[in-house]
Design a protein around this nucleic acid. Structure first.
Lengths: 210, 210
DNA sequence: GTTTGCGTTAACAAAATTGTTAAACCAAAC
DNA sequence: GTTTGGTTTAACAATTTTGTTAACGCAAAC
């Protein structure tokens, strides 16, 4: 009924192995036999549960796109906080999400580069969330700016700055690791410093007087 | 005379086609037959000139790594200029290099992700150029800072900010294009705005009084 | 005019990878 | 105990992709 011998488990194991393999090597570089082996079954099981490599990949892509949107929705927006804390929480939330999913950006970016059409799917969710976030953010900035309490900056530019600064660290991890080791001695320490630095950079652009 | 017998050209045509295919699809996604077809020859020619797909790929990677190092050396460093112009020229030079080689970052990053060992090759050149650049930059910043003419910021952080802000625009091109179209109407216009914005962001951190 | 050697091609071979199937397995239902 | 149905496996088939080779063409050298 529920958990028979171990059917539900196999499917999950395959998904887990597929996620690792696809995120690490991309669609073309991934091998179905390697996925099956990592999941502890023969590769016929992969076809039994998911019909084809394509379908399995679609499942992973779809999951990851959802994850991306969920992040956009959950971690960035804190409209109840004052501007400074709101931005700080936003950047740090985004940063921590990336730290927990370090190879998600490269996966998404490669998939979008190969299938730009898939951007259409994201467009709706992305713009809808982003515009509502941006509107409320811009409103707050303008409010403070008209009292000379901060610079009147473009919230859209601010958001792109934030994403650029955070994402690059993880997307270029091998290079960043080497540089961090040579210049700061330790990668994790360096990440901490960058998280603070990125908050500082964004807040600095606002010149908040609060 | 026309395109019948031109031996020296064939090698170049293959290289050109290989560059396109590899940069676009990566090693695993590229097809030797597609490369040969794009070059206007049979795929046997590819083996005749380069022995194997691997060897051909190595050639392209090597060329692109050289290109990356060349860029680091040529476009970023202008020690003869005053700090403000120096930074502005550096950022804009880097930006224009990326605009002329928009899929180079993704290619390099994917290759480094798959073969982190290759980072060792880059390490020397990268650090050597970067440290000499950073030393002279930090020196200049400290000099001005001790006269209260600018903020005493970490030049290394500034360099990472610059690279992050510039590279993200091109590495995430499909997403950025969509966002730019929706928010600013035109991608090229948006790129111009971002180039200026990035200069402003970096200079803003310095709070230069000159 | 014949030879020589590089460049080229088409057909073929080899390897790797994905996809399929018949039969075995095994727990639960009858 | 037998049946049933989903799960699993091993062997196989199909396809795709890379790599090889023998023969051909052609220009330059002899």
């Amino acid at each position: 009924m529920e958990d028979q011998n171990k059917p539900k488990d196999t499917e999950a194991m395959i998904l887990q192995a597929a996620e690792r393999e696809f995120l690490e090597k991309g669609y073309a570089g991934a091998r179905t036999t390697a996925i099956a082996e990592a999941a502890g079954v023969t590769h016929a099981m992969l076809h039994y549960y998911f019909r084809s490599k394509d379908k399995l990949f679609e499942k992973i892509v779809s999951d990851k796109m959802d994850k991306l949107c969920e992040m956009l929705l959950m971690t960035i927006n804190h409209p109840e906080l004052p501007l400074k804390e709101r931005i700080q929480k936003g950047i740090e939330g985004h940063f921590e999400f990336l730290r927990a999913n370090p190879d998600l950006p490269r996966f998404i970016i490669n998939e979008l580069a190969e299938h730009p059409g898939r951007m259409e799917t994201l467009r709706g969710t992305l713009l809808k969330n982003a515009t509502s976030l941006l509107e409320s953010l811009q409103e707050e900035i303008d409010r403070l700016a008209s009292c000379n309490l901060c610079e009147r900056v473009d919230a859209r530019m601010l958001l792109i700055d934030m994403v650029s600064l955070n994402v690059f660290l993880f997307i270029a991890a091998p290079m960043v690791k080497t540089v961090a080791d040579s210049m700061y001695g330790d990668y994790d320490l360096f990440l901490e410093m960058r998280r603070r630095e990125n908050v500082k950079t964004i807040l600095g652009k606002l010149k908040l007087k609060l």
